[in-house]
Design a protein around this nucleic acid. Structure first.
Length: 107
DNA sequence: AGCGTGACGCAGG
DNA sequence: ACCTGCGCCACGC
């Protein structure tokens, strides 16, 4: 662990395949508090070819966020669909079904 | 050192 | 459920 970004990446690495987490969720687990923007920035700073499953991080609405890299949104969706994550007709993911629950609270 | 921007989230109407 | 306004912090110029 050398910086905030790596802390974020470490959390994202913990997201299991077929699941998604929100930026805010990642920010908290990374110790950034409410700084969801920072979580997004950390992913933006990801080096190409990294083993970090960045595609598993979406916004609180369950949709792929717009970013600078054109076409990257489509790549993220494709990658998620390959993992079994389903998108609604409105392009949103049901976080109740595919959202990552680190606590795994029985219920 | 200041200003604008950004892979966000929450509260209010 | 929708859209709008505001706050948060780091990065680049």
């Amino acid at each position: 662990m050398q910086g905030r970004n790596e802390k974020v990446w470490a959390v994202v690495r913990c997201i299991p395949e077929g699941c998604v987490a929100t930026y805010g969720q990642v920010a908290r687990l990374a110790g950034l508090g409410r700084l969801a923007r920072q979580a997004g920035y950390a992913l933006h700073a990801l080096p190409p070819g990294s083993d970090v499953p960045w595609q598993r991080v979406v916004n609180a609405r369950g949709e792929v966020s717009r970013r600078s890299d054109p076409g990257g949104e489509d790549l993220q969706r494709i990658r998620l669909e390959m993992e079994g994550v389903e998108f609604g007709l409105d392009g949103r993911i049901d976080l109740a079904r595919f959202g990552w629950q680190p606590t795994g609270v029985p219920g």
